[in-house]
Write a protein that binds this DNA or RNA. Sequence first.
RNA 1: GGGCAGGUUCCAGAGCGGCCAAAUGGGGCGGACUGUAAAUCCGCUGACUACGUCUUCACAGGUUCGAAUCCUGUCCUGCCCA
Length: 394
Amino acid sequence: MTTLSLLKEHVEIMLPEDGLQQKLALNRPLVIKLGFDPTAPDLHLGHAVVLKKLKQFQDLGHQIVIIVGSFTAQIGDPTGKNKSRKPLGKEEVLANADTYIQQLSRVIEIHKCEVRFNGDWLDDLTFKEILQLLSTITVAQLMHRNDFNKRFTENTPIAMHELMYPILQGFDSMQIKADIEMGGTDQLFNCSMGRQMQEAHGMEAQVVMCMPLLKGLDGKEKMSKSLNNTIGLTDAPNEMFGKVMSIPDALIPEFLTLATNFTLAQIEEVKQINHPMDLKKRIARNIIEQYHDAAAAEAAEQFFVQQFQNKVFDEKNFEPVAIRDLGLIKEQMTLLELCHLLKKEETKSNIRRLISGGGVWVNNEKMMDPNQVIKVTAGTKLKLGKRLLVELVP
RNA sequence: GGGCAGGUUCCAGAGCGGCCAAAUGGGGCGGACUGUAAAUCCGCUGACUACGUCUUCACAGGUUCGAAUCCUGUCCUGCCCA
């Protein structure tokens, strides 16, 4: 396979179409830009699609520049959904950037990347300079952006500063003299703004490469933290396995090409597997191999088969929780109280509903009365909802 | 600046003086079925010291025995006009 076709693999949008080969023809390390907002610093498989592509560039000796949107985070990429975003403090930005970078290193070689904060150049812009920037962009151009257009025609508000977001992102590209900007297809507009601005300022326009957006566990929306349909890069193996098994079958081809690291030949091979369930298992294992290791993948599969398919409530599948760590030391308490201690993030009302709805088992027996008093003793096994399995230990 | 229409629970969207913690749909969470798939069916979906209590319908006051619903002011949004 040629370098070009390898790099083009899975790419959904390339702007201009022959841009990549032209850049490669320059025969020098290219500056590849990837930006992110340091808001929700949890990377998932959706991000990984783009990151894996970056890794390919990196392996070929190109320079990756990560832009931390320390400034733009305060605006927020206008999706229309995030209402008023509270400005992040400096420490918060740094902390988020840190965890983010740490997670990036699960896919790319972070020590070879350059990390820049766009506050470095955006913070100090004067109003005059800003106006100069703005003068190269027309309202009609901005309105081409899908999101703006939609909101405008639907009479939902668009704040002025939201219009600035793509422009600032374009400015970032000017600053670092990006040759290529990568992103998901949802970034197409923002990225092409960079092209236009670079050109307007006498620079060579960057090439825009957009990767497809991986769908989330619900099979409908794109994978996104706020939709709670993600498989996180740092998720535990068992969690990853279960999540992959729960995707709708219709999503299999997409996961196969975008979430696994199978080669095209391997994909063809794996596709021969008949039962969708087995196919998903294969995918799940591959994903865990990428972010953990083969042994973990093996173990996760075993766990899954035993726990959810054979419904064997094996001792070792229960997560041990020390009674003394529960915080409340009482010999007896109501089921409600105990469950709440095990699922602190839920409201008691929710726990109550969970119990009354038949979602709680104690020692393999369904308990539907929240007020049932039970003895808190070591060896007690609880199942709360579909996922949480707990065994009390001293 | 003027005229008009609006701001309701996670979202969309009813309600327009008591039967409203608020219809309906979506989403979410449980349960049945299953392959932790899809489809289908059932229950739940403000909080709590829970057969009762408390806090919600932009905000602040007011009228009423009683307000999401009426009045006044404020803030916010959209449309039209300037």
